[in-house]
C-alpha cells in the first residue's frame, strides 16, 4: 500500500493516445505529487489536451498505464471524476442557463445537496469576481469572464486535483494576473494543479515542475529553474539586423557565444554575460539595428529542445 500522503496523484507510464492511425501522444511517463503544481508546456498540436482528457478520465487510453488518485480511469471513471475538477480548453458553459445556474446545476451532477450547491455557487462567484453577474446570461460575458466562470465551475466539488487546459488563453494581461492569483491561492490550500499552457511566463509563475512536450513526446522535465540551467545559459543577447542581413551577420558572429540561434527576425547569442557578447559582436564589425540583453527563459529552453519557438 503506497503512502497516501506522497503517492502520486497522477501516474502515467508509456501512455499513448491515437486517433485512428494518428498517434497524438507517443508514450509519456509522468508523476504528479500531492500539492504540486505541474505543467505541460508545448506548442499547438503537441498533445497537451489529448493527455489532459485522458487524465480527466474522459478520453479512453490507447495504450500504456494511467492511474489517477490511484484508480484506473478505464474502470473507475465516475469515482475519479467525482474528486477532480476540470477546466477544458474550450469553454463548455451552458448558454441556456444563467451564470449562477451553471454552477448550481453542475454541483448537482456530483450528488451535492441543492443547498450546498447554492452556497458553493455564491462562494465561487465571489472568488472569481463574478458575483454581480450571477443572474446574467452566459452570452453576455466577455471571454475572460467565461474563462473565470469555467474555472469556478471546476471547483464546485472542492476537488483534490485540478486540471486546467490553457486556463488563461485569450485573456488580457490583467485578467491573466487575476487568474494566476486565484490559482496561487488554491495551491496554498493544498490543491494539486495540473495545467497546460503555451505561455512560458505562466509556466514559470505557476509551475513547481513541468514537462516540455513536443509532437506527442516529452522533450525535457524539471523545475523552470533547473530546465533553464540545464538547457540554456544565464543570459541571452538578441541582435536585430536589417532585412536579409541575418545570414551574413550570423557567419561573422560564429564562435562568439556558447550557442547561437538564427531566427527569421533576430539572432540569439547564448552566454553567461550578454554584455560581453555584444562587445565582441561590435569588435567583429557587426552593426545591428538594435540589441537587447535578457535572462534566459523557458522559451530558450524550448528553442534548444525542439529547434522551434513556442509560437510557431
Amino acid at each position: 500500500m503506497p503512502d497516501p500522503t506522497t503517492a502520486p496523484l497522477v501516474r502515467a507510464r508509456a501512455l499513448t493516445k491515437s486517433y485512428g492511425d494518428f498517434q497524438a501522444v507517443r508514450g509519456i511517463d509522468i508523476d504528479v505529487a500531492p500539492g504540486e503544481a505541474f505543467g505541460f508546456l508545448g506548442p499547438n498540436g503537441a498533445g497537451k489536451s489529448s493527455t489532459m482528457r485522458m487524465v480527466a478520465a474522459v478520453s479512453p487510453v490507447t495504450s500504456g498505464e494511467l492511474r489517477i488518485l490511484g484508480l484506473d480511469p478505464a474502470t473507475d471513471g465516475p469515482q475519479i471524476r467525482a474528486q477532480i475538477g476540470v477546466c477544458p480548453q474550450e469553454d463548455t458553459l451552458d448558454t441556456e442557463l444563467t451564470v449562477r445556474e451553471n454552477l448550481v446545476v453542475y454541483g448537482r451532477y456530483f450528488g451535492m445537496s441543492r443547498q450546498r450547491c447554492r452556497q458553493r455557487a455564491d462562494e465561487l462567484l465571489e472568488f472569481v469576481h463574478l458575483a454581480d453577474k450571477a443572474g446574467g446570461k452566459i452570452t453576455a460575458l466577455s471571454g475572460g469572464m467565461k474563462r473565470r466562470l469555467t474555472i469556478a465551475r471546476s471547483l464546485v466539488n472542492e476537488p483534490r486535483l485540478l486540471l486546467l487546459d490553457e486556463p488563461t488563453t485569450g485573456l488580457d494581461p490583467q485578467a491573466r494576473h487575476v487568474v494566476w492569483d486565484q490559482l496561487y491561492r488554491l495551491k496554498q490550500t493544498g490543491v494539486t494543479i495540473v495545467l497546460t499552457t503555451h505561455y512560458m511566463d505562466e509556466a514559470e509563475q505557476l509551475c513547481d515542475r513541468l514537462v516540455v512536450m513536443d509532437q506527442g513526446a516529452i522533450a525535457a522535465e524539471g523545475s523552470p529553474r533547473t530546465l533553464i540551467e540545464a538547457y540554456s545559459t544565464r543570459e541571452v543577447a538578441e541582435i536585430r539586423m536589417g532585412v536579409g542581413d541575418n545570414a551574413v551577420a550570423a557567419d561573422k558572429a560564429e564562435g562568439l557565444a556558447e550557442r547561437m540561434e538564427v531566427l527569421p527576425d533576430r539572432i540569439l547569442l547564448y552566454a553567461d554575460s550578454g554584455d560581453a557578447v555584444l562587445e565582441a559582436v561590435h569588435a567583429r564589425g557587426i552593426r545591428p539595428q538594435s540589441t537587447l540583453v535578457r535572462r534566459s527563459t523557458l522559451e530558450d529552453v524550448f528553442l534548444r529542445l525542439t529547434g522551434r519557438s513556442l509560437g510557431e
Binding site: 467525482a82 474550450e90 448558454t95 453542475y106 451532477y109
Partner: peptide, 14 residues
C-alpha cells in the same frame, strides 16, 4: 455546436 454533453461527462456522470 454547444459542448454541454462534454461538460456533463467531466463529472461523475457517464
Amino acid at each position: 455546436w454547444e459542448p454541454v454533453y462534454s461538460a456533463r461527462i467531466a463529472t461523475p456522470l457517464r
